[in-house]
C-alpha cells in the first residue's frame, strides 16, 4: 500500500528524493501521510484534489486485497 503511493508520488514530482510516505496503524485501520517538496504539492494534489483522490481510489483497491482499511493525507511541508 505504501509502495503504491511512493511509486505514484515519485513519478509525478520534480524532486523524487523529497517524497516521504509514513504509514501508521490504528487498530485495524491504517493511515498514510504523504510529504513532498513544497513546489510539488500541486502535482500530488491536483486541481480540486483530483490527483490525491485518484490515488485514494487506487489505494482502496490495494488495501482491499489485504482486507484492510486505509486513508491518505497529503501533509504540508514544514
Amino acid at each position: 500500500m505504501k509502495e503504491l503511493i511512493e511509486y505514484i508520488a515519485r513519478s509525478l514530482v520534480d524532486d523524487p528524493r523529497q517524497v516521504v510516505v509514513k504509514q501508521e496503524r490504528y487498530g485495524s485501520k491504517y493511515h498514510l501521510e504523504l510529504r513532498v517538496a513544497k513546489d510539488d504539492m500541486g502535482r500530488v494534489i491536483g486541481k480540486n484534489g483530483r490527483v490525491a483522490n485518484a490515488m485514494r481510489v487506487l489505494l482502496r483497491v490495494a488495501a482491499g486485497r489485504e482486507n484492510k482499511q486505509i486513508t491518505l493525507d497529503v501533509v504540508d511541508p514544514k
Binding site: 483530483r50 490527483v51 483522490n53 485518484a54 481510489v57 487506487l58 483497491v61
Partner: peptide, 15 residues
C-alpha cells in the same frame, strides 16, 4: 477505479 487508474497513468506517462 478504471478512470483513476487511467488518470494516474496519463499523468505519469505524460510527465
Amino acid at each position: 477505479t478504471l478512470n483513476a487508474l487511467q488518470y494516474i497513468t496519463s499523468l505519469i506517462v505524460s510527465k
